[in-house]
Protein backbone atom coordinates (compact mmCIF):
# COMPACT_ATOMS: atom_id res chain seq x y z
CA UNK A 1 0.00 0.00 0.00
CA UNK A 2 1.10 3.56 -0.73
CA UNK A 3 2.80 4.98 2.44
CA UNK A 4 0.72 8.18 2.25
CA UNK A 5 -2.47 6.17 1.98
CA UNK A 6 -1.36 4.07 4.94
CA UNK A 7 -0.81 7.24 6.98
CA UNK A 8 -4.23 8.51 5.93
CA UNK A 9 -5.90 5.30 7.08
CA UNK A 10 -4.07 5.35 10.40
CA UNK A 11 -5.28 8.91 11.08
CA UNK A 12 -8.82 7.90 10.24
CA UNK A 13 -8.40 4.96 12.64
CA UNK A 14 -7.20 7.35 15.40
CA UNK A 15 -10.29 9.54 14.93
CA UNK A 16 -12.57 6.50 14.98
CA UNK A 17 -10.91 5.28 18.18
CA UNK A 18 -11.28 8.72 19.76
CA UNK A 19 -14.99 8.81 18.89
CA UNK A 20 -15.42 5.34 20.37
CA UNK A 21 -13.67 6.26 23.64
CA UNK A 22 -15.48 9.60 23.81
CA UNK A 23 -18.81 7.83 23.25
CA UNK A 24 -18.08 5.35 26.06
CA UNK A 25 -17.11 8.11 28.49
CA UNK A 26 -20.19 10.04 27.55
CA UNK A 27 -22.35 7.02 28.31
CA UNK A 28 -20.51 6.40 31.56
CA UNK A 29 -20.81 10.00 32.80
CA UNK A 30 -24.45 10.25 31.81
CA UNK A 31 -25.23 7.24 33.99
CA UNK A 32 -22.66 7.95 36.73
CA UNK A 33 -25.23 8.85 39.43
CA UNK A 34 -27.31 5.73 38.69
CA UNK A 35 -24.22 3.52 38.95
CA UNK A 36 -23.23 5.11 42.28
CA UNK A 37 -26.71 4.84 43.75
CA UNK A 38 -26.95 1.20 42.68
CA UNK A 39 -23.58 0.37 44.29
CA UNK A 40 -24.51 2.15 47.50
CA UNK A 41 -27.88 0.33 47.57
CA UNK A 42 -26.02 -2.99 46.99
CA UNK A 43 -24.14 -2.37 50.24
CA UNK A 44 -27.41 -2.02 52.14
CA UNK A 45 -27.28 1.75 52.63
CA UNK A 46 -30.47 3.69 51.99
CA UNK A 47 -30.06 7.04 50.34
CA UNK A 48 -32.73 9.65 50.89
CA UNK A 49 -34.53 11.02 47.78
CA UNK A 50 -32.99 14.47 48.48
CA UNK A 51 -29.43 13.07 48.46
CA UNK A 52 -30.17 11.02 45.34
CA UNK A 53 -31.56 14.11 43.59
CA UNK A 54 -28.50 16.16 44.67
CA UNK A 55 -26.26 13.42 43.31
CA UNK A 56 -28.11 13.43 39.98
CA UNK A 57 -27.86 17.21 39.73
CA UNK A 58 -24.12 17.10 40.51
CA UNK A 59 -23.66 14.39 37.84
CA UNK A 60 -25.56 16.50 35.28
CA UNK A 61 -23.30 19.46 36.04
CA UNK A 62 -20.23 17.23 35.67
CA UNK A 63 -21.69 15.88 32.49
CA UNK A 64 -22.20 19.37 30.99
CA UNK A 65 -18.62 20.25 31.87
CA UNK A 66 -17.36 17.03 30.37
CA UNK A 67 -19.39 17.48 27.18
CA UNK A 68 -18.04 21.00 26.79
CA UNK A 69 -14.42 19.99 27.44
CA UNK A 70 -14.69 16.77 25.44
CA UNK A 71 -16.30 18.54 22.50
CA UNK A 72 -13.62 21.24 22.64
CA UNK A 73 -10.85 18.62 22.68
CA UNK A 74 -12.67 16.69 19.96
CA UNK A 75 -12.88 19.78 17.77
CA UNK A 76 -9.17 20.40 18.30
CA UNK A 77 -8.41 16.81 17.37
CA UNK A 78 -10.74 16.92 14.37
CA UNK A 79 -9.18 20.18 13.18
CA UNK A 80 -5.67 18.82 13.45
CA UNK A 81 -6.67 15.57 11.74
CA UNK A 82 -8.33 17.54 8.95
CA UNK A 83 -5.10 19.48 8.47
CA UNK A 84 -3.13 16.24 8.38
CA UNK A 85 -5.62 14.67 5.95
CA UNK A 86 -5.39 17.68 3.64
CA UNK A 87 -1.61 17.58 3.65
CA UNK A 88 -1.69 13.83 3.04
CA UNK A 89 -4.10 14.28 0.15
CA UNK A 90 -1.66 16.79 -1.29
CA UNK A 91 1.17 14.32 -0.75
CA UNK A 92 -0.84 11.62 -2.49
CA UNK A 93 -1.47 13.86 -5.47
CA UNK A 94 2.26 14.74 -5.65
CA UNK A 95 3.10 11.02 -5.51
CA UNK A 96 0.64 10.32 -8.29
CA UNK A 97 2.10 13.18 -10.32
CA UNK A 98 5.63 11.88 -9.76
CA UNK A 99 4.61 8.38 -10.77
CA UNK A 100 2.87 9.74 -13.86
CA UNK A 101 5.90 11.85 -14.70
CA UNK A 102 8.22 8.89 -14.33
CA UNK A 103 5.98 6.77 -16.55
CA UNK A 104 5.72 9.54 -19.13
CA UNK A 105 9.48 10.15 -19.22
CA UNK A 106 10.17 6.42 -19.35
CA UNK A 107 7.81 6.02 -22.27
CA UNK A 108 8.98 9.16 -24.07
CA UNK A 109 12.63 8.15 -23.85
CA UNK A 110 12.46 4.42 -24.26
CA UNK A 111 10.01 4.29 -27.17
CA UNK A 112 12.12 6.27 -29.69
CA UNK A 113 15.28 4.56 -28.44
CA UNK A 114 13.61 1.17 -28.94
CA UNK A 115 12.41 1.92 -32.47
CA UNK A 116 15.67 3.64 -33.55
CA UNK A 117 17.60 0.65 -32.21
CA UNK A 118 15.40 -1.84 -34.06
CA UNK A 119 15.66 0.18 -37.31
CA UNK A 120 19.46 0.22 -37.04
CA UNK A 121 19.62 -3.46 -36.09
CA UNK A 122 17.37 -4.38 -39.03
CA UNK A 123 19.66 -2.42 -41.36
CA UNK A 124 22.78 -4.05 -39.88
CA UNK A 125 21.27 -7.51 -40.35
CA UNK A 126 20.43 -6.66 -43.97
CA UNK A 127 16.70 -6.98 -43.38
CA UNK A 128 15.81 -3.75 -45.23
CA UNK A 129 16.78 -2.90 -48.78
CA UNK A 130 15.88 -0.18 -51.29
CA UNK A 131 12.86 1.94 -50.42
CA UNK A 132 12.46 0.18 -47.07
CA UNK A 133 16.06 1.01 -46.15
CA UNK A 134 15.47 4.70 -46.91
CA UNK A 135 12.25 4.67 -44.87
CA UNK A 136 14.02 3.03 -41.93
CA UNK A 137 16.79 5.62 -42.02
CA UNK A 138 14.26 8.46 -42.14
CA UNK A 139 12.22 7.04 -39.28
CA UNK A 140 15.31 6.39 -37.14
CA UNK A 141 16.31 10.01 -37.75
CA UNK A 142 12.86 11.18 -36.65
CA UNK A 143 13.18 9.08 -33.50
CA UNK A 144 16.50 10.75 -32.70
CA UNK A 145 14.94 14.19 -33.34
CA UNK A 146 12.19 13.33 -30.89
CA UNK A 147 14.75 12.31 -28.30
CA UNK A 148 16.75 15.47 -28.87
CA UNK A 149 13.67 17.66 -28.33
CA UNK A 150 12.85 15.77 -25.17
CA UNK A 151 16.37 16.22 -23.80
CA UNK A 152 16.31 19.94 -24.71
CA UNK A 153 12.98 20.41 -22.92
CA UNK A 154 14.21 18.67 -19.79
CA UNK A 155 17.44 20.68 -19.79
CA UNK A 156 15.54 23.94 -20.35
CA UNK A 157 13.26 23.07 -17.45
CA UNK A 158 16.23 22.23 -15.23
CA UNK A 159 17.91 25.53 -16.15
CA UNK A 160 14.67 27.37 -15.47
CA UNK A 161 14.52 26.05 -11.89
CA UNK A 162 18.22 26.56 -11.11
CA UNK A 163 19.43 29.72 -12.85
CA UNK A 164 16.15 31.10 -14.21
CA UNK A 165 15.37 31.70 -17.89
CA UNK A 166 18.08 33.30 -19.99
CA UNK A 167 16.28 36.02 -21.98
CA UNK A 168 17.53 39.25 -23.58
CA UNK A 169 14.50 41.40 -24.32
CA UNK A 170 14.53 44.06 -27.02
CA UNK A 171 11.85 45.66 -29.19
CA UNK A 172 10.70 43.05 -31.69
CA UNK A 173 8.37 43.22 -34.66
CA UNK A 174 6.01 40.57 -33.29
CA UNK A 175 4.09 40.13 -36.54
CA UNK A 176 7.16 39.58 -38.72
CA UNK A 177 8.81 37.27 -36.16
CA UNK A 178 5.62 35.22 -35.73
CA UNK A 179 5.16 34.81 -39.50
CA UNK A 180 8.78 33.67 -39.81
CA UNK A 181 8.42 31.10 -37.00
CA UNK A 182 5.08 29.90 -38.41
CA UNK A 183 6.77 29.29 -41.78
CA UNK A 184 9.38 27.13 -40.01
CA UNK A 185 6.69 25.21 -38.12
CA UNK A 186 4.87 24.47 -41.38
CA UNK A 187 7.91 22.37 -42.39
CA UNK A 188 8.52 20.71 -39.03
CA UNK A 189 7.36 17.05 -39.06
CA UNK A 190 5.76 17.51 -35.61
CA UNK A 191 3.57 20.42 -36.68
CA UNK A 192 3.40 20.12 -40.46
CA UNK A 193 0.05 18.28 -40.32
CA UNK A 194 -1.68 21.42 -39.02
CA UNK A 195 -3.46 24.04 -41.14
CA UNK A 196 -1.67 26.97 -39.54
CA UNK A 197 -3.07 30.50 -39.94
CA UNK A 198 -1.49 33.75 -38.74
CA UNK A 199 -3.56 36.91 -38.44
CA UNK A 200 -2.66 40.31 -36.99
CA UNK A 201 -4.55 43.53 -36.30
CA UNK A 202 -1.94 45.88 -37.75
CA UNK A 203 1.72 46.27 -36.81
CA UNK A 204 2.67 45.17 -33.32
CA UNK A 205 5.89 45.73 -31.41
CA UNK A 206 6.76 43.98 -28.15
CA UNK A 207 9.66 43.81 -25.74
CA UNK A 208 10.64 40.18 -26.17
CA UNK A 209 13.46 37.74 -26.72
CA UNK A 210 13.53 36.20 -30.17
CA UNK A 211 14.66 32.70 -29.02
CA UNK A 212 12.12 32.68 -26.17
CA UNK A 213 9.35 33.70 -28.58
CA UNK A 214 10.38 30.84 -30.87
CA UNK A 215 10.18 28.33 -27.97
CA UNK A 216 6.81 29.72 -26.88
CA UNK A 217 5.27 29.46 -30.35
CA UNK A 218 6.81 26.06 -31.06
CA UNK A 219 5.43 24.64 -27.81
CA UNK A 220 2.00 26.21 -28.17
CA UNK A 221 1.55 25.10 -31.77
CA UNK A 222 2.80 21.54 -31.19
CA UNK A 223 0.56 21.34 -28.13
CA UNK A 224 -2.44 22.45 -30.19
CA UNK A 225 -1.55 19.91 -32.90
CA UNK A 226 -1.33 17.11 -30.32
CA UNK A 227 -4.78 17.78 -28.91
CA UNK A 228 -6.76 19.15 -31.84
CA UNK A 229 -7.61 15.89 -33.61
CA UNK A 230 -6.56 14.25 -36.87
CA UNK A 231 -6.65 17.27 -39.25
CA UNK A 232 -5.82 20.06 -36.83
CA UNK A 233 -6.57 23.70 -37.55
CA UNK A 234 -4.43 26.06 -35.52
CA UNK A 235 -4.65 29.85 -35.55
CA UNK A 236 -2.10 32.35 -34.25
CA UNK A 237 -3.81 35.68 -33.65
CA UNK A 238 -1.91 38.86 -32.73
CA UNK A 239 -3.53 41.97 -31.27
CA UNK A 240 -2.88 44.96 -29.05
CA UNK A 241 -4.62 44.97 -25.68
CA UNK A 242 -3.82 48.11 -23.69
CA UNK A 243 -0.17 48.01 -22.71
CA UNK A 244 0.25 44.47 -23.93
CA UNK A 245 0.92 42.82 -27.23
CA UNK A 246 -1.13 39.63 -27.11
CA UNK A 247 -0.35 36.46 -28.97
CA UNK A 248 -3.14 33.88 -28.98
CA UNK A 249 -2.71 30.30 -30.21
CA UNK A 250 -5.99 28.46 -30.56
CA UNK A 251 -7.31 25.19 -31.86
CA UNK A 252 -10.74 23.73 -32.43
CA UNK A 253 -10.12 20.47 -30.58
CA UNK A 254 -12.01 19.05 -27.60
CA UNK A 255 -10.49 21.54 -25.12
CA UNK A 256 -9.26 20.71 -21.64
CA UNK A 257 -11.79 17.92 -21.02
CA UNK A 258 -11.82 18.05 -17.23
CA UNK A 259 -8.15 18.99 -16.73
CA UNK A 260 -7.57 21.69 -14.12
CA UNK A 261 -6.88 24.97 -15.99
CA UNK A 262 -5.02 26.33 -12.92
CA UNK A 263 -2.47 23.53 -13.11
CA UNK A 264 -1.76 23.25 -16.81
CA UNK A 265 1.20 25.63 -16.54
CA UNK A 266 2.82 23.56 -13.76
CA UNK A 267 5.82 21.44 -14.70
CA UNK A 268 5.22 17.74 -15.45
CA UNK A 269 1.46 18.01 -15.21
CA UNK A 270 -0.39 15.78 -17.63
CA UNK A 271 -4.01 14.85 -17.47
CA UNK A 272 -5.17 11.31 -16.68
CA UNK A 273 -3.41 8.01 -16.14
CA UNK A 274 -0.16 7.46 -18.02
CA UNK A 275 -1.01 3.81 -18.53
CA UNK A 276 -3.76 4.87 -20.88
CA UNK A 277 -1.88 7.83 -22.33
CA UNK A 278 -3.22 9.16 -25.59
CA UNK A 279 -0.70 11.92 -26.34
CA UNK A 280 3.09 12.04 -26.35
CA UNK A 281 4.98 14.37 -24.02
CA UNK A 282 6.01 14.70 -20.40
CA UNK A 283 4.14 17.86 -19.43
CA UNK A 284 6.82 20.52 -19.86
CA UNK A 285 5.64 22.52 -22.89
CA UNK A 286 3.18 24.87 -21.18
CA UNK A 287 5.43 25.23 -18.13
CA UNK A 288 8.21 26.55 -20.39
CA UNK A 289 5.74 28.88 -22.14
CA UNK A 290 4.57 30.33 -18.85
CA UNK A 291 8.08 30.76 -17.40
CA UNK A 292 9.42 32.37 -20.57
CA UNK A 293 6.44 34.74 -20.78
CA UNK A 294 7.05 35.80 -17.18
CA UNK A 295 10.78 36.28 -17.77
CA UNK A 296 9.92 38.74 -20.56
CA UNK A 297 7.67 40.75 -18.27
CA UNK A 298 4.46 39.17 -19.51
CA UNK A 299 2.21 36.27 -18.64
CA UNK A 300 0.49 33.24 -20.13
CA UNK A 301 -3.14 32.36 -19.54
CA UNK A 302 -5.53 29.66 -20.70
CA UNK A 303 -8.89 30.40 -22.31
CA UNK A 304 -10.87 27.29 -21.60
CA UNK A 305 -13.94 28.36 -23.57
CA UNK A 306 -12.91 30.64 -26.40
CA UNK A 307 -15.61 31.90 -28.75
CA UNK A 308 -16.29 29.24 -31.37
CA UNK A 309 -15.13 26.33 -29.15
CA UNK A 310 -11.80 24.57 -28.79
CA UNK A 311 -9.00 25.79 -26.59
CA UNK A 312 -6.68 28.80 -26.63
CA UNK A 313 -3.66 30.07 -24.80
CA UNK A 314 -2.76 33.73 -24.72
CA UNK A 315 0.67 35.13 -24.06
CA UNK A 316 0.70 38.82 -23.19
CA UNK A 317 4.03 40.61 -23.65
CA UNK A 318 4.83 44.27 -22.89
CA UNK A 319 3.94 46.29 -25.99
CA UNK A 320 6.31 48.94 -27.33
CA UNK A 321 5.17 52.14 -29.05
CA UNK A 322 6.64 52.63 -32.49
CA UNK A 323 8.47 55.83 -31.51
CA UNK A 324 10.23 53.96 -28.63
CA UNK A 325 11.28 51.06 -30.77
CA UNK A 326 14.75 52.34 -31.59
Amino acid sequence: MDPSRRKLYSYVAVVALYLLVFGWWLFFFAHQSEFLLRRVADRGVTVSPEVAEALRTATDENMRMFVFEGAFLGLLLLGSVLLVVRSLQKELSVHRQERNFLSAVTHEFKSPIASAKLYVESLQLGRAEGEKRERYLKHAHQDLDRLQKMVESLLASARMTTTGPDVQVRPLDLVAETREIAAELAHDPQTATAALEVSAQGALLARADSAALRTILRNLVSNAVKYAGPAPRVAIELRRDGRHAVLRVRDWGPGLKGADPRRIFDAFVRGGDENVRTRPGVGLGLYLVSELARAQGGEARALTQPEGGGFAIEVALPAVEKEHAK
Binding site: P112, L118, Y119, K132, H139, Q142, D143
Partner: peptide, 26 residues
Protein backbone atom coordinates in the same frame (compact mmCIF):
# COMPACT_ATOMS: atom_id res chain seq x y z
CA UNK B 1 0.58 2.68 -30.30
CA UNK B 2 4.05 3.90 -31.30
CA UNK B 3 3.83 3.94 -35.08
CA UNK B 4 7.55 3.38 -35.72
CA UNK B 5 7.88 0.51 -33.26
CA UNK B 6 4.79 -1.19 -34.64
CA UNK B 7 6.20 -0.86 -38.16
CA UNK B 8 9.67 -2.23 -37.47
CA UNK B 9 8.40 -5.07 -35.26
CA UNK B 10 5.74 -6.21 -37.72
CA UNK B 11 8.13 -5.95 -40.71
CA UNK B 12 10.64 -8.17 -38.95
CA UNK B 13 8.05 -10.70 -37.82
CA UNK B 14 6.72 -10.89 -41.38
CA UNK B 15 10.26 -11.56 -42.60
CA UNK B 16 10.28 -14.54 -40.22
CA UNK B 17 7.19 -15.86 -41.99
CA UNK B 18 4.46 -14.82 -39.55
CA UNK B 19 1.24 -13.09 -40.59
CA UNK B 20 1.07 -9.89 -38.53
CA UNK B 21 -1.85 -7.68 -37.63
CA UNK B 22 -1.14 -4.33 -35.91
CA UNK B 23 -3.61 -2.67 -33.52
CA UNK B 24 -2.74 0.76 -32.09
CA UNK B 25 -5.43 1.28 -29.46
CA UNK B 26 -6.22 -0.63 -26.26
Amino acid sequence: DEEHLAEVISDNLELEGYAVEVVTDG
